[in-house]
Nucleic acid binder design. Structure first.
Lengths: 209, 209
DNA sequence: TAGATTGTTAATCGATTAACAATC
DNA sequence: TAGATTGTTAATCGATTAACAATC
């Protein structure tokens, strides 16, 4: 029975399922039960079946799930088969690293452009992604559709940059600025990567294990 | 009343409290109640008081909390006043970006060394952090104490590298490899930054907002 | 058919929120 | 003192786990 409201915890497990199934498929596994998938992932079979039941019925009694099929279904739920358009604001070390290494296309995104204030960077491109000046932002967004902005700008201008982009119609932010961003426009989605928060939880755990 | 077992959810909120309090202190705020802190963070006052009560009593009835004091207490719980030693394995784009930009010292860590296989990189240093060859790892760990290893190596060698380090005594991993690592040594702690998982949850949300 | 495993309902567990006596 | 706010206990809510009828 499909659910209306799906909890954040469920959504955050979906990419893990997808990752595990991708690996199983690569290993040539054709068929997998919730029980054995759970064993591989350290999760109960119940939880897997509950999670999946939020989105539909993908298995078969007495058989389990077809790995390739389930992988495709979860990929579809996550949107890896979409062609989302993405731009990056701020091309420092981290931005460069992402443009060089992150598999945007495998996750359903096409990295179309980057923007920076550095005169040395403007006009060049990284891994095929052209870098424009920050002044070109308005013009670009008028003529291109952008689903997600990767924010890799300095903390000091993070919120104002986000506000500017929201005014231009952007509704999804992948936020690496370590600033808690917010917007008065309710449908705007922020996904934060807070490196420091992550390391601090590790710091706590190594001291209290 | 201090608690024995503290849930992961609580621990993951601590850095956010710390971050918010740091900002409040910078703004010159001296005194803060759980209620007003909660408003700023979109969290209930109850939850804040519950969370803090896991670690001690830091407030005063009728007054609230001294911002600077509470910040210091939470910082202490997280270990920002420790001098943890950290090394990095794999100095690609992402590793470089972290060495250049991440405020290790502000989080209680000293980045002591990095290791890579690239002959061009070995012998150089980044932001004062020397880069050694992977063969030097055993010797280094015999003579230096290392609390956390930042893993920024290719996926294909992630698990074997982790195993090698566990054998050498490492018990904390900050894992950027996008591989689900595990160890048979129970006290080993992994903290994962899975960029793709993060972006995929955003992909889901912009399609289902 | 018999065995296996699903999807779903019910039971349990844990985390969040509310309430309030204690007290600054 | 009166008002405010804590720390903590109790109530609620939601998420995880267990159970099981349905069925491949």
């Amino acid at each position: 029975m499909k659910k209306e409201n799906i909890s954040d915890a469920v959504i955050r497990r979906l990419p893990r399922y997808y990752r595990q199934l991708t690996e199983l498929c690569a290993r040539g596994v054709v068929r997998i039960s919730s029980h054995s998938l759970g064993q591989e992932m350290n999760i109960t079979a119940s939880q897997i079946r509950q999670d999946l039941s939020c989105f539909g019925e993908f298995g078969q009694q007495g058989y389990g799930y077809n790995a390739e099929e389930l992988r495709a279904e979860i990929g579809h739920i996550l949107g890896v088969d979409k062609n989302h358009h993405l731009i990056m604001i701020g091309v420092g070390n981290l931005g460069r690293a992402l443009l060089h290494n992150f598999p945007f296309s495998q996750t359903g995104f096409s990295a179309d452009a980057a923007f920076d204030i550095s005169p040395a960077a403007i006009g060049t491109s990284i891994n095929g992604v052209p870098i424009y000046s920050m002044e070109a932002l308005e013009g670009y967004l008028r003529s291109h559709s952008v689903d997600v902005v990767v924010l890799t700008v300095p903390q000091s201008i993070a919120q104002e940059t986000a506000d500017r982009l929201v005014r231009l119609g952007v509704r999804g932010f992948w936020n690496f600025t370590n600033v808690e961003l917010s917007s008065s426009v309710p449908e705007v989605q922020f996904e934060n990567i807070h490196f420091a928060d992550s390391l601090l939880t590790l710091s706590y755990r190594i001291a209290n294990r």
